[in-house]
Amino acid sequence: MKTIRPNVPRYGSPVTSLLLLCLCTIASPACAEDSPTPGQFKHQITGLFMPEREQDLRDAFKKLPQFKLVSIDYANAEVVLDYEPAKVWPGEKPEKYVGRLNDDLRNVSRASFGVKSLRTKPLDKLKLVEIPVVGLDCKGCSFAAYEMVFKLPGVERATASFKSGKVTALVDPELTDSSKLEEALKMGGVEIGGQPKP
């Protein structure tokens, strides 16, 4: 399992294509900070399953004034927040910060948004999977499909949209593949197949 480390500023280039997540991360050496300093932190968001969700995320953070939302990177499902962990969660241990942020975000979004630890595996080791699906063009259904796959082992980031007709996922090929995702979707009642819409 990934270890939870204090968040460190990172520099990554934004993704340009919706379909291809070509992230070249040049990770600067992690400054293993034991005592967090005020500043900006990048976090991995769950629940950003379609582009419309970006606005929902902004609305959610409006309800959390203790965090200043600096930017959203939809393709990578990452946000940059400006806040002081020690002030926001006084007395809390640093290794618990991600969990606390997760709780806070869930509370204001009917548990539809969450926070998990940043990816450890580099992008070139990950594979993009795309599964055509058929269903009602409905945000709730898309979210339901998303929920069937995003927690599967090896899934780093997923999207789902019946409007566009597909479920996509960035997966670790050593842990999972598209057939496992398809199975999960079928079990949840999603119809596989059909033509993806442009």
């Binding site: 539809s112 709730g140 339901a144």
Partner: peptide
């Protein structure tokens, strides 16, 4: 096609 799950719809 039917809708999937009540829970996710409530959340949305």
């Amino acid at each position: 096609q039917a809708h999937l799950g009540l829970g996710p719809h409530g959340q949305m």
